[in-house]
């Protein structure tokens, strides 16, 4: 059974002021199997974040269904860990309390929370920063805290919404490597939203290439490149060329919204 099943999902945003409804997503069908690492790749405005938010339970589809392990998604829940675009940490809590936030809400004992949090802090390489506050850390370190917070819940699925988008190139590559390492060590299903082609092809076991307005799945490409992936290898470039073609044909498509694409 697929871990995540998205069937016939559409999302229409009503725009009462302009009396024009915007179709953000149109008839999306995706199956993500257990332990797959799916990257949703597409230009901004293609609805990839909206799709992720539906799996997370933050938004509801206008039609169609999203299920995780057979359960229909209607609300957020701790069996689906989310790593946000901005880390979204509680600024009043030190790193270890943020990582153990799940346990704090469940009323866990302080010693237990501290100990459990420590395991995940070590895992994301933040040992020694347990008592720092988010404002004292760099963006990359805050993202690590966000990842540790999601991992601690031991979720069936981890959903990531351009988590490295705000980081510099060097930090981003480090974080990508670490994410792959953690995923390989602990297994789990990941859905990762990105607009970076290299990022998608470096991380995923599959890439779903999306088109914009209305958001549709162009193609789901399985990636069987060996890891660690070499972004300069011929195989890598071959797939990249294919993805670029998909995105390019999308761009030259005559469209009323051409102006928006500039």
């Amino acid at each position: 059974m697929a871990t995540i099943e998205i069937s016939g999902v559409s999302k229409i945003f009503k725009d009462a002021k302009r009396k024009a409804d915007v179709t953000a997503l149109d008839d999306i069908n995706i199956k993500v199997e257990k332990n797959q690492f799916l990257c949703l790749l597409g230009p901004s405005g293609c609805g990839k974040s909206t799709l992720l938010n539906m799996i997370a339970g933050f938004e509801k589809p206008s039609s169609g269904t999203v299920t995780v392990d057979g359960q229909l998604i209607t609300a957020p829940g701790s069996e689906r860990g989310v790593v946000f675009q901005q880390a979204n940490l509680m600024p009043w809590l030190p790193v270890w309390e943020n990582v153990g936030f799940h346990l704090l809400l469940r009323g866990g004992q302080k010693a237990v929370r501290r100990e459990t949090a420590q395991r995940y802090i070590d895992m994301v390489g933040l040992t020694g920063f347990e008592n720092h506050y988010p404002s004292e850390l760099s963006g990359g370190m805050n993202q690590r805290v966000g990842i540790a917070r999601a991992l601690l819940m031991n979720p069936q699925v981890i959903l990531m919404d351009e988590p490295f988008g705000a980081l510099d190139e060097q930090t981003r590559m480090d974080m990508q490597n670490e994410l792959v390492r953690i995923w390989q060590e602990h297994q789990g299903t990941i859905v990762f939203v990105t607009h970076g082609i290299d990022e998608a092809l470096t991380l995923g076991t599959h890439v779903a290439v999306m088109s914009a307005r209305p958001g549709r799945i162009r193609e789901i490409i399985p990636l069987d490149l060996p890891r660690p992936r070499d972004i300069t290898s011929p195989q890598f470039n071959e797939i990249k060329r294919h993805v670029l073609d998909l995105l390019r044909s999308e761009r030259t498509k005559p469209s009323l919204e051409t102006l928006d694409h500039s």
């Binding site: 829940g77 979204n88 917070r149």
Partner: peptide, 27 residues
């Protein structure tokens, strides 16, 4: 209060009461 923090709280499994106590009030 930042809506994203509420989302993060809901994501880790917080109900309304916990969101109020652990996020909205401190914020």
């Amino acid at each position: 209060c930042d809506r994203n923090l509420i989302r993060a709280g809901a994501m880790v499994g917080g109900g309304n009461r916990q969101l109020l106590r652990f996020i909205v009030l401190p914020a």
